[in-house]
Design a protein around this nucleic acid. Structure first.
Length: 708
RNA sequence: GCGCGAUUAGCUCAGUUGGUAGAGCAAUUCAUUUACACUGAAUAGGUCGCAGGUUCGAGCCCUGCAUCGCGCACCA
């Protein structure tokens, strides 16, 4: 009997020592943790923002993935959990810009190379922080295989993908309307846009013989087309292409009538003018009818010279003044003050997105999506929970081309040349192109970087060393992708598409999606609300094992998890209960006899019940019902093992019959050891600590055999 | 507008192929030098959102509705 059991369990004195022992053993590495011919199990960790600090969501990722990995490792699988860090392009750039702002500097006007170098240093310095925090949660990932999204080999893989997409005609340089944030000075994909419902004014303006409706009079300077539905009887006297003279904001103009069925006859007056440079619908109408497009608003959100006296003004300031002028000219029919509509905003800063026509790189998604849909429908990817499959297929069926150009420095530079005279773009990963294949003009290096998700979308095969390495051949395709349901489109769906495109295989067999971690009241955690629960404070206070139990119990996949200190506290008590059970068992049943004695029929029944539990828990683990497995174990250990079996054993241990005593002793020890094994994936620290003090087995619990 | 999810004890949630409603926390009562007060024994608490249907039998399957949450969408 070891003396450490005489005082209560002390996680602070245990966890660091145990993690170090695991790490030094090399058993996180699949080359060491299994037999050569063992079946393979692989999870690629979602690359963590290298600049981040561990939050509750990370705590959940690390807990669930570690449970899966420890379980499979104990079952003898050649188990790889590959950790990685993400440069997190735009996210990090925003953080760094705030830092610059505090120092009175700005990214605009800085030498891009210098800025990149600074952010790289910042990132490298911060990355040790997040790594040590991941270790605190007990993550048994193979640090020897750790990857960073800006590693040379990763960038080479990403470049290879871009070149192939270009050669196959799937990556193209398009002069198209993009979502532009005037604060961050970059374009976004559709996913980085948040729709916000707002109430604004809606203006009815006299436009020659028509009344047009608009919520954005500041875009109307260049409007010289008035569009109506071809079937609209109100306007049947006006012919397509007919020109009319009319008085507009800054004087007389000539307008052309266009008939297009995109116009909703029910809305407004059924007549509208269009601004193709700053509106998606208008852009499409202009493309259909081959109309002129003119920029009205610049990249900073200010009006251009076309606005005459309003030039240089921000659109917000100009709007009221323009209306005043129109009113003075008698061109305002009426104003509706209560117009409810949806405004597209930057997900990061809330600035209203100003669509702009820009020359950027796009990926044709339809062909990629069709392949993905085919595989998903064949059941080659299993979604947990199942309804994410529906959400995914719906998105894939309606997919739009993906703008992958970002006008920021922090990211993987796009390996392409752009023609100075005609704007044509050519992928050029070997830096060979100097002349435009279209017009013979001079080419210059594209200054943009890739959308972060373009590179992380290739993570499963890129991080394994596609296409030649042994790791790629051994571990790809991977088994489980476990991540937040929130990034199902951003990341999961794109990984499937790009994985299929490059490797011909879906990158993982199972997608396990967890929900958000909320505060005790069920509210989203945020710094501004001040309700953020820091997992590191929790683990410090209650122990990591208690934190992990709190993360997993009651947490069904896909649904959000309210987290309270009370809950974690309950599992701290549980950890101590296990500790005291051990004390009782090894005080009363020291492990000097190794042989199984003849077991009494009473104990036989008890052991049979344990067998049922083992079967039950194993089944739950195999079907990813960790919340059920953990709860069953908790209930068994506390309310069956401690409250019933141990209580009843007290009489048996007092018996005069040596056979009864040795049977009871054996039974207690056997149940304890089995419980420790079953609990290990959930509560790795305390179980390993107890194991190392009681077991005659020299093997670590981490690699001991899962009970059958 | 379209889609997805939720609705079960005071709170947070489980409930696997349909077979008499479960857990944790909270509450109430009792016990007390016990392996463990980070304890034990017990008690109370639910027309499973509403209305129909299928079935011998529905928390679960089907239809409709309500409320809440979320996602998607070019009505200027």
């Amino acid at each position: 009997m070891n003396e450490i059991f005489l005082s209560p369990y002390n996680p602070q004195a245990t966890e660091e020592r145990i993690y170090k022992m695991w790490e030094e053993s090399g058993l996180f590495n699949p080359d060491n943790n299994s037999k050569a011919d063992a079946p393979v199990f692989t999870i690629i960790m979602p690359p963590t923002n290298a600049n981040g600090s561990l939050h509750a969501g990370h705590g959940l990722v690390m807990t669930i993935e570690d449970i899966m990995v420890r379980y499979k490792r104990m079952q003898g699988f050649k188990t790889l959990w590959l950790p990685g860090l993400d440069h997190a392009g735009f996210e990090t750039q925003v953080v760094y810009e705030k830092k610059l702002e505090k120092e009175g500097r700005s990214r605009f006007g800085m030498d891009p190379k210098e800025l990149y170098k600074e952010i790289m240093e910042f990132t490298v310095t911060n990355s040790s922080n997040i790594k040590s925090q991941i270790k605190k949660i007990g993550a048994s990932c193979d640090w020897s295989r750790e990857k960073f999204t800006l590693d040379k080999e990763i960038i080479q893989t990403v470049y290879g993908t871009f070149q192939k997409l270009f050669d196959d005609g799937l990556a193209y340089r398009g002069n198209r309307i993009v979502s532009w944030c005037s604060k961050h000075q970059t374009s976004f994909s559709d996913l980085e846009i948040t729709d916000v419902e707002r109430i604004d004014k809606f203006y009815y303006l006299k436009y020659g013989p028509f009344v047009i409706g608009t919520s954005r009079p500041e875009t109307k300077f260049g409007d010289k087309y008035v569009v109506m539905h071809p079937d609209d009887k109100r306007y049947s006297d006006f012919k397509d292409g007919q020109q009319i003279e009319l008085e507009w904001i800054n004087g007389p103009i000539t307008a052309t009538i266009i008939k297009d069925s995109a116009v909703d006859m029910e809305f407004g007056t059924g007549a509208m003018t269009i601004t193709p440079w700053h509106d998606t619908t208008d852009f499409e109408i202009a493309m259909r009818h081959d109309l002129d497009k003119e920029q009205i608003i610049d990249e900073m959100g200010k009006l251009l010279p076309v606005a005459g006296e309003f030039a240089g003004m921000s659109i917000n300031k100009a709007r009221g003044l323009i209306i005043e002028k129109l009113q003075a000219k008698g061109l305002v029919e009426k104003i509706d003050d209560n117009y409810k509509h949806v405004v597209r905003t930057c997900y990061k800063c809330g600035t209203v997105i100003e669509p702009q026509i820009k020359s950027q790189w796009f990926i044709k998604m339809k062909p990629l999506a069709e392949k993905a849909l085919e595989k998903i429908n064949l059941g080659e990817v299993t979604y947990i929970p199942d309804h994410y499959k529906k959400i995914t297929t719906y998105w894939l069926e309606n997919i739009m081309d993906w703008n992958i150009s970002r006008q920021i420095v922090w990211g993987i530079p796009i390996p392409a040349k752009i023609c100075i005279s005609c704007g044509h773009g050519i992928a050029d990963i070997n830096n060979e192109v100097s002349e435009c294949t279209k017009c013979g003009g001079k080419m210059e290096q594209d200054k943009d970087t890739f959308d972060t998700w373009f590179s992380s979308g290739q993570w499963p095969f890129a991080s394994l060393g596609f296409p030649e390495s042994n790791d790629y051949k051994t571990f790809y395709p991977t088994d489980v992708m476990e991540t937040a349901g929130e990034i199902i489109f951003f990341w999961v769906s794109r990984m499937i598409m790009l994985g299929l495109y490059m490797t011909g295989k879906t990158p993982f067999k199972t997608v396990y999606l967890h929900g958000l971690v909320l505060d005790a009241k069920g509210l989203k955690m945020s710094k501004s609300k001040g309700n953020v629960i820091d997992p590191l404070i929790i683990t410090q206070k209650f122990g990591t094992d208690a934190f992990r139990m709190g993360m997993v119990i009651g947490n069904t996949p896909g649904t959000s998890l309210p987290l309270s200190e009370d809950k974690i506290k309950a599992y701290k008590h549980f950890a101590n209960k296990i500790w005291n059970i051990t004390r009782f068992v090894y005080t009363n049943a020291p492990n000097d006899e190794l042989k199984k004695p003849t077991v009494t029929s009473d104990d036989e029944i008890i052991l049979k019940e344990l067998d049922i539990l083992v079967k039950d828990v194993t089944k739950d683990m195999d079907s990813y019902k960790f919340y059920l497995a953990a709860e069953k174990l908790y209930h068994y250990v506390w309310h069956t093992f401690a409250d019933k079996i141990i209580e009843e054993s007290k009489a048996k241990l007092q018996s005069n019959d040596v056979a009864i005593i040795s049977s009871a002793q054996y039974t207690l020890r056997y149940i304890l050891e089995t419980s420790l094994k079953l609990l290990h994936p959930f509560m790795p620290f305390i179980t390993e600590e107890i194991w190392s003090n009681i077991s005659s087995d020299k093997k670590m619990l981490m690699v001991s055999e899962w009970p059958k």
